[in-house]
Design a protein around this nucleic acid. Structure first.
Length: 502
DNA sequence: TAAAGCGTCCC
DNA sequence: CGGGACGCTTT
């Protein structure tokens, strides 16, 4: 998954400051440098301090983006030997491994890798046709400027001392290289200093950034791959290429960078007015850095919950936000996802269906019976008030769409937990069986609704057009009563809150 | 002080 | 390679 707001390519269109940067770099008087300088692969012109040059790059199209563009080849038009990243490393999904976890630390995959087509991080040398040998090295650096060497180590094929080194022969057509079996071995906190010192001692410091006084402040959950290359010209001059930075690679195990995932939800249907309690089981999250979004093509809203509603990082109890149109007449399918606040990363969506209000739905004009009565609290001991809470809870989907129990032809009351808990003293079904509910739904709804629901069910995309969405938004703005507005004032209805907190 | 979170390691 | 135990650290 790419970061939000990032285009598919790092190439910047039309004229851009990167051209200027390229010019600076291409004019780098590298041949005037001594051999000892070359050990550290300096690339930046002496008269341009590293920081200021990098900032120049940063302030254009991608605010907040890494200061050094890693793949600027499409904008490159000189004949200088160049190294580009053809396939970025996959940013998420690989776990950094401790040394004690064994020799193999897994393998960094390519960004476009998937189950069917496995790819690997790949570099290409350009304008190197006549060169016999190009030495390429890869090391790990900090995610952010000034890209100090990272204590973690690259391990695997062609790796030693935490870096990976290979030799390419462009004059034999060998200009491209896939890095297979590259793993990231993480160090323990107490090993940060010794690891960095060892790296520096070997002359590994692509940006001449040295060691940070507060080296323990390094972010151990993210690295960038840093590619550098050198070759010898016939006149025995040593020439350098790079350094070129990859996109950041995040540790899968760390909760502040890992992929977000909704494992299960106890409810997939709910009232369009919102306010219903839903439990989400998820992979570890950080309670102060997580929100749950409900959204469709044209609308999104935050679910309502507090940090106390996040249970041990793996479950969230939330209240559904109201749908933007309280007067829907058909069930409205939306998506629910987790979103990390700090980086905006979202999980895959899970479908949630908003149901029309009573009376608004086609064919539903009769009143539902009351769901509880005072007598029912006397049914038996309920020390934890589980049953009584259950009765107070908003009706589940099937309760909601059923206008009058027992009156619908073709309804199978024996399936799942659609029986009213009050009617069955032994009732103790756990989470709702949504499959059953869905089946029942399809036995009840009109053919048109069924068709729509079925279609969108398989596409996984809400069956909306822009016109629908616009109409709904307008409808919504006209539909709120004063009381409803007060009731929902803490929830968002529109895109306005897209990047904001809740 | 207890609970939650994190880092590390084991299976 | 993923799940999770568990002890140490932080809140």
């Amino acid at each position: 998954m790419r970061e939000p707001g990032r285009a598919g390519s790092n190439c910047i269109l039309s004229h851009d400051p990167l051209d200027d940067v390229m010019e600076l770099i291409n004019n780098d008087p590298v041949s005037t440098r001594s051999e000892s300088d070359m050990v550290n692969f300096p690339t930046l012109p002496d008269h341009v301090p590293c920081g200021s040059l990098l900032e120049t790059v940063t302030i254009n199209q991608f605010p907040g983006e890494p200061a050094v563009s890693s793949t600027w080849e499409p904008c490159h038009n000189s004949a200088q030997p160049t190294l580009i990243i053809k396939e970025q490393p996959k940013q998420r999904g690989m776990r950094f491994r401790y040394q004690c976890e064994g020799r193999s630390a897994g393998s960094i995959l390519g960004e476009s890798s998937n189950d069917q087509n496995k790819t690997l991080p790949t570099i290409v040398l350009l304008n190197c046709e006549g060169i016999r040998e190009v030495h390429v090295s890869v090391c790990l650096v900090w995610k952010d400027h000034p890209y100090r060497v990272h204590p973690h180590a690259l391990v695997g094929k062609d790796c030693h001392d935490g870096i990976c080194e290979i030799i390419l022969h462009p004059n034999e057509g060998e200009t491209e290289h896939c890095f297979s079996n590259l793993g990231i071995q993480c160090v323990r906190k107490k090993e940060i200093e010794s690891s960095v010192k060892a790296r520096l001692k070997l002359g590994i410091d692509p940006f001449n950034a040295g060691m940070w006084r507060h080296h323990e402040e390094v972010d151990l959950n993210v690295v960038r791959l840093c590619f550098q290359a050198w070759y010898i010209l016939p006149a025995t001059q040593r020439m350098t290429i790079g350094p070129v930075l990859s996109e950041p690679v995040y540790d899968k195990k760390s909760t502040n960078t890992s992929e977000l995932k909704i494992c299960r939800m106890n409810k997939e249907y709910g009232r369009c007015e919102g306010g219903e309690e839903v439990y989400i089981l998820c992979d570890k999250v950080q309670k102060e850095d997580i929100k749950v979004m409900f959204f469709d093509n044209s609308w999104e809203a935050c679910a309502n919950f507090s940090q106390a509603d996040v249970h041990r990082q793996i479950a969230i109890v939330l209240k559904t936000p109201p749908y933007h149109d309280l007067h829907i007449r058909d069930p409205a399918r939306v998506q629910v996802c987790l979103q990390r606040i700090t980086d905006g990363i979202r999980s895959d969506g899970v479908t949630f269906t908003y149901l029309p209000r009573e009376g608004d739905s086609y064919g539903l004009q009769r009143k539902r019976p009351r769901m509880s009565s005072p007598l029912e609290d006397l049914v038996g001991p309920d020390p934890h008030r589980i049953e009584s809470r259950r009765r107070q809870a908003r009706p589940s989907y099937i309760e909601y769409i059923t206008p009058d129990y027992g009156s619908l032809p073709g309804m199978d009351y024996s399936v799942g937990n659609v029986m009213d808990p009050q009617l069955s003293p032994d009732y103790s079904a756990p989470l709702e069986d949504t499959t059953s509910n869905l089946e029942i739904f399809h036995t009840w709804i009109t053919p048109e609704l069924e068709e729509q629901a079925a279609a969108s069910h398989f596409e996984g995309i809400p069956p909306y057009t822009d016109e629908d969405a616009t109409a709904s938004l307008v409808g919504h703005s006209l539909s709120l009563t004063g009381e409803q507005e007060r009731m929902y004032s803490d929830c968002s209805y529109t895109d306005d809150m897209r990047m904001g907190g809740c």
